[in-house]
Amino acid sequence: MIPHGGTEGSVDQETAAIDFIQARFPTAVLAVAESSGQKWIEVARDQIVPVLTALRDEQGWDMLMDLTAVDYLGMETPERFQMVYQLYSLARNSYFRVKCWVPESDPTVDTLTHVWKAAPWAEREVWDMYGIRFNGNNDLRRILTPFSYEGHPLRKDYPLQGRGERNQFPRYEK
């Protein structure tokens, strides 16, 4: 049986990836955790690009499936924001997740623009929705909201119904 999201051996491959990072970047690993039968690794923010590049070039995690963020506002976490990188190995049909914490006081991460061509637009979305900047991404325009939009609506302290921007349009009469 092939469960959704990977082959039967995917836990072994996650373990191999974690062992690789721990051996190669011993100071970068902050935590290793497991949930629902999936393992992931938390690495230091300044090491995220070397770690992901090594995983791609030396371990065959060749596809960046997704790059997104989570806002843990008001929760007992090391920092407010967390970046989540979801990798995929085409050859092994297997997934691996790498995370890093991003502080609210300095919401910046190094860009993956030069590592995966899939990264720039995903980083634009994270910038648009969470206000996390990506050092080295020269095209950090908004991607979902209008260019004139102010604020980052997926932050948990952003009001659900907005700040009145949905009412600020000219009115056409009959």
Partner: peptide
């Protein structure tokens, strides 16, 4: 925040 609450406003 992202949705117009009735196009008849505009």
């Amino acid at each position: 925040y992202a949705m117009i609450q009735g196009i008849d406003r505009f």
